[in-house]
Design a protein around this nucleic acid. Structure first.
Ligand SMILES: [Mn+2]
Ligand SMILES: [Mn+2]
Ligand SMILES: [Zn+2]
Ligand SMILES: [Zn+2]
Lengths: 147, 147
DNA sequence: CATGCAAATGCAAACCGTTTGCATTCATAT
DNA sequence: ATATGAATGCAAACGGTTTGCATTTGCATG
C-alpha cells in the first residue's frame, strides 16, 4: 500500500499521523503472517525505529478500535495477534504441529446462522471459527494419511 | 451424577481420589453455566471445603488432560472456563450485552470440513466456533429487532 | 511562523490470571 | 502398618498487557 493511503486511513479515523502508526500499518499490510505486539516491536527496532512496547500496544489498540487492523485471538496462542484489515471475511486453519496459521476465505455459516436465530431466538451478529489439524508439510513429516 | 460414578471417572483415569477432585467434578457436573477456576474456588470455600487456588488450577488441568472436563477459552473472557465433559459436540452463543453464554448442539461443519480438506490439503481434526450477538432478553431491553 | 492544547509517547510500575518450587501431607499398593 | 509417589499449601514468580504520570509531539488557530 502506498504511504498516502496509509496516511489517509489514519487521518480519516480522526487520529494524529505519527511515524509509529504509519510504520505499524505498513508492516501489517506487507506481512503475510499474523504478528504479535512483540513481533512488531522487534521489527520496528530492526528498522531503526526506536519505540516503546507500550506505545506499540496503544497503537495497536487504536488501530483496532478504528477498524484499520484486526486483533486475532487464537486459542492456544498466549499473545494476541494482529493483521491488516482487508474487509474480507475469513477464518484460520491452525496446524497443531508447527503452529502455522493458514487463512480460508469462504464460510458456510450464513444459512446456518439464520437457522440458529429461528430456533433459539438469539440474534447473531458475528462468529469466529478456528479449524485445527495438520498442514500439508506436517502431514508428510508425521506420516499422517490425509483424507 | 452419583458419587460412585464420579469416583470411577477419577480412578479409571489413574488418578488418586481426593476430596477436591470429587467435589470439583460434582460442581461442574451440576452447574448449568461455565465456571472459572475462581468461581470454583469460591464455591468450594462456600461449601466449607477450604482449598488453595493453585490446587484448583492443578486439579482442573488434570481433569482436562484426562477428558473428564473441558477447558473453554472464550474470546473476550480473561479467565478460562470449565465445563463437565458430556461428550456432546457443541458450540456457544455469546451475548455481547450481558455476557451470558448459551450452548447449541448441532453443527453444520462436517461436510464443509471435507470440502476444505479437499481444497487446501490441510487435514482437519477439530474446530471451534463462537457466535456473537444478543440473547432474547437483551434484544428486548436494547430494542433490537431480531430477524 | 509562533502559540496553545489535546493527543501521543516513554518509562517504570502495576495488574492479574496462571504457574512453579519446595516442604509437607495424603492416598493407596503391598 | 509401611513405603512411595502423587497431591497439596504457600509464597513467589511469570508474562502478556495495562496504567499513571511527566514529557513531547501533531496540528489547529491566529
Ligand atoms: Mn465465517
Ligand atoms: Mn462444530
Ligand atoms: Zn504444520
Ligand atoms: Zn444478553
Amino acid at each position: 500500500m502506498e504511504k498516502k493511503s496509509i496516511i489517509s486511513k489514519i487521518t480519516e479515523a480522526g487520529l494524529k499521523k505519527t511515524k509509529y502508526r504509519v510504520n505499524i500499518i505498513d508492516l501489517l499490510e506487507k506481512s503475510n503472517t499474523l504478528l504479535s505486539a512483540q513481533d512488531i516491536h522487534t521489527q520496528l527496532i530492526k528498522n531503526k525505529t526506536k519505540v516503546n512496547l507500550s506505545t506499540v500496544y496503544r497503537t495497536l489498540d487504536k488501530l483496532t478500535e478504528n477498524g484499520i487492523i484486526n486483533k486475532v485471538d487464537i486459542e492456544q496462542e498466549k499473545q494476541s495477534l494482529y493483521e491488516y484489515n482487508r474487509d474480507e471475511h475469513h477464518h484460520f486453519l491452525i496446524c497443531k504441529n508447527c503452529n502455522k496459521i493458514e487463512t480460508i476465505y469462504n464460510c458456510p455459516l450464513h444459512d446456518y446462522e439464520q437457522e440458529i436465530m429461528k430456533d433459539s431466538g438469539f440474534y447473531i451478529t458475528g462468529h469466529k471459527i478456528e479449524f485445527y489439524g495438520y498442514c500439508k508439510e506436517c502431514q508428510k513429516s508425521l506420516n499422517i494419511s490425509s483424507l
